[in-house]
Design a protein around this nucleic acid. Sequence first.
RNA 1: GGCGCCGUACCCAAGUGGUAAGGGAGAGGUCUGCAAAACCUUUAUGCAUCGGUUCGAAUCCGAUCGGCGCCUCCA
Length: 463
Amino acid sequence: MLIFNTLTGREEEFQPLQSGRVRMYTCGPTVYNFAHIGNLRTFVSQDLLRRWLLYRGYQLTHVMNVTDVDDKTIANACERGVSLEEYTAGYAQAFFEDCRRLRLQQPERVAYATRHIPEMVELVEKLLEKNLAYRQDGSIYYRISAFPKYGRLSHLDPDQLQIGHSVEADEYSKDNPRDFVLWKAPKEGEPSWETRVGRGRPGWHLECSAMSMKYLGDSFDIHGGGVDLIFPHHENEIAQSEGVTGAPFVKYWFHTEHLVVDGEKMSKSKGNFYTLRDLLDKGFDPLAIRYLLLSTHYRKPLNFTLEGILQAAAALRSLNNFLLLVRTCRDAAAGNPRIGEILQQALARFESAMDDNLNISGALGAVFDARYDLNALAESQGLFAGDRERILTTFGKFNALLDSLDLEGEDTTDAQVRELIQARSDARRNRDFKRADEIRGQLLQRGVILEDTRDGVRWKRIG
RNA sequence: GGCGCCGUACCCAAGUGGUAAGGGAGAGGUCUGCAAAACCUUUAUGCAUCGGUUCGAAUCCGAUCGGCGCCUCCA
């Protein structure tokens, strides 16, 4: 399997440090607000990666952090007049609700920054010992000039970095304006911890170094996040971790491109800023949103539109309608050897596309082509029991990534629905169409749609 | 100024040297008591533009135009 590595700027053959086992860390949310659709795109792409690793049989340990202490969480909690814990707990819970709605698999471990203060302090102590960090006005900073590899991930030359407008060189009393803070001096009215390096609170970058190494070791396989984190966040993590251990921190860096909305950068002032909740309130299907976020390659900018959600919903519907056909079309007398061929080819195409740096569009092309070929056979010849099983098994494999397909079928034990459908069929047979339409209306109110086909009545629930 | 992503049909989107996957929408059709759904057919002599290399280029090289991002706490 090939995977693009930001560190080398190339696609590389994926070879975990320990054979058969993958250790992965991804930067999770800062819980100062509801996650927006751009945040969620990144998490969906990480979900696709973890699902593909599992598909390929790796034993996976995936750790995701939750940043529950930083400038924004503190400021917002303060503004609302609640404690930091109370404030962040609500948004953390909301985040995991969003993840469930989008069918994101839970990482093996979720790590909260505020529960790992001792581990962070330990790192700071070691960096001080090695003279990679220094104290200044109660804060502790990382001395970038002492870490020659600084800039290797982002391919930036530290000497050529422009100092941003927001940071006046003399605003901080740092040796070098590019040095970043490891430990912040306490401020009146802000949460702080009494620790061996003094009272204060951690800088943002520190948690990811501390928690990833605690759970995954000094060196691990994959570290992911949005492209905006390449610099400075991930660059700083490398400086912190490798500064302490001297060992290579991460083998493969996995970064997801941003999404834009209607071709423009998402921003609250433009009115094109969406959270998942906003979209669900408008009546959009969370699985269609999952499909939309999933179906563009993770290293390409994704243009998110409401129209796109509807297109995704239609694509998903057509796959599920196909599966309905597979389950309900008339029985063939014998198995069709063509079906095995079609499935085998489709699966091979699907897998080789995914192995090629998670080429999900190519993989989906294989899925839809299989649907097309199989539809023609099922419509014209019906399906043998063994054919049905094989089709559902293969689509079950596709669904290991999509997690949006109806493989099981509807609840056929709903006696009332069954009775109504039967009653309508009887009415139709007696050419009592008024009665039949009446029953169809009743079923529709229960959320059941009927399809009259040559092979009998099919029904499904409205999504 | 430095670093990076991108430009393929009405919309979304694969394809990185061998003659344009797939999805949506539109149009036509099949089925049907009707409707809906489903299914089938169809839709780029063309891949931002201009040069070049090649038997052959969306793919490689050069230039140009355009969109987006990062360059100290933003996924």
